[in-house]
Design a protein around this nucleic acid. Structure first.
Lengths: 236, 236
DNA sequence: GTGCTGCATTGACCCAAGTCAACGTGAATG
DNA sequence: CATTCACGTTGACTTGGGTCAATGCAGCAC
């Protein structure tokens, strides 16, 4: 039996069998609501390095990331960049309040995202308050993360920033002690997330490796070898 | 006719006549819902310098600020502080997602806040989706502000930070060009909001005054005398 | 008035992180 | 295989903003 659904745009979307449903906004919906959600959903694939959305553009779509990693960021006119988050499957992208996106999003790895028309999602929300409830809950979590990041950017040293970053990533990805953790973003992305330069990130990682806190088997993975000291180095 | 209502705790709360209702979460409620809101509301007054809530405490109450200014902040174990926002009437405090507050809040000036039991507010939200809708909308705005602040903290110079701060405050408070703007917080609060030290804030303000961008009639007010150049100095 | 006391300002000096530059290194290309 | 190219690392030097210390100044107590 094929439970896939064909939506308005011809894309086939199967919310009922979606891997990330339990953790995404779709998680708590009744089968009927889920059918309606699938009906307004489409799939969007983006290659690593390509843009999903751009700051300032009209915010017509909202996405749920289902595979890969996405970075969201703001730019200054002179090109300085602040990455405000690395998104993983289950995370929501583009739910601006206003009619334009307030940040850009670029794929760190190849990604797959579930696309909803903004208007359709808002309409569905009116009928299924549970959907809005999930959204509010996610917004609350994002706000908490944003505040923790403000503390990092405003008050932590380079060493504390890098330690906090590694620990946070390990926790979000559910990496066990000693297990190698993929680091899909490059040094420039890490720098722009932590408010540092590439060179400082590189030097700090090297120092941590020499101090025995971490291992760097290759430039796209880390293992945390001394959790206790890394935690101490994070400043909290 | 007295429209005030007496709530469970004996406090008298009159949502229907509240000044800030149009801008707060209560704004779009029907008279009946408003009555129920008033029934679960209480009033809390806090003197300047005293705490309203503390990070880590069980999040039993949610507040809407009705008078004065509040600062919300996070602390590191060694005392470093990051102020994540200055709240003005209409703003919501303490809607943590989780069961503990994720930040502390201290009164900058004497304040008056409208208090709701968290549980009662959540229950009311189930009956009046419009309430949840307003909350989600506010959360979206806060998230946008948080991202702008991350850009400031991660990538802007001291001069850009101070300029951005003054412009943002003037806009939020609806201050007209040339009109003196009250600056109720002290230099230490500004420093901890902008990720700088007291000395750097002071020096930067002095430089801006000498450059003719602003005036500092006393230490608790500013006037913006050259909006165009201040905007240019803000970096965006 | 005098003396506190708590900000705020200013100056002199320092250092963590930025800048600039050289050099590896590994993957992709012809 | 050599060549290129993008990224990462490392070193030498600079600098914006921090630190430390002195001074100013208004409000308050007596």
């Amino acid at each position: 039996m094929d439970r896939q659904q064909t939506n308005c745009c011809g894309a086939r979307v199967d919310c009922a069998h979606c891997d990330i449903r339990p953790i995404a906004i779709c998680g708590a919906l009744q089968p009927m609501a889920l059918g309606k959600l699938a009906a307004i959903a489409g799939t969007r694939r983006v290659d690593a390095g390509a843009q999903l959305i751009q700051e300032g553009e009209p915010a017509e779509d909202v996405f749920t990331l289902t595979e890969g990693m996405l970075k969201i960021y703001k730019l200054m006119p002179d090109g300085r960049r602040q990455i405000t988050g690395f998104l993983i499957p289950g995370d929501l992208v583009g739910l601006a309040y206003g009619d334009s996106y307030i940040y850009s999003a670029e794929a760190v790895t190849d990604i797959v995202a579930c696309r909803f028309r903004r208007g359709s999602l808002l309409a569905l929300m009116a009928d299924y308050p549970e959907l809005e409830h999930r959204l509010l809950s996610r917004a609350g979590n994002e706000l908490a993360a944003a505040q923790a990041q403000m503390l990092l950017l405003g008050r932590k040293t380079a060493r504390e920033r890098v330690a906090t970053f590694l620990l946070g990533l390990a926790e979000r990805r559910g990496i066990d002690r000693g297990e190698p953790m993929p680091l899909p973003m490059n040094r420039s992305d890490i720098a722009d997330f932590l408010g540092l330069t590439i060179e400082t990130v590189s030097r700090t990682l090297t120092l941590m490796r020499k101090a025995g806190l971490i291992n760097l088997p290759d430039k796209h993975s880390v293992t945390i070898t001394d959790m206790a000291h890394l935690q101490a180095a994070s400043g909290d």
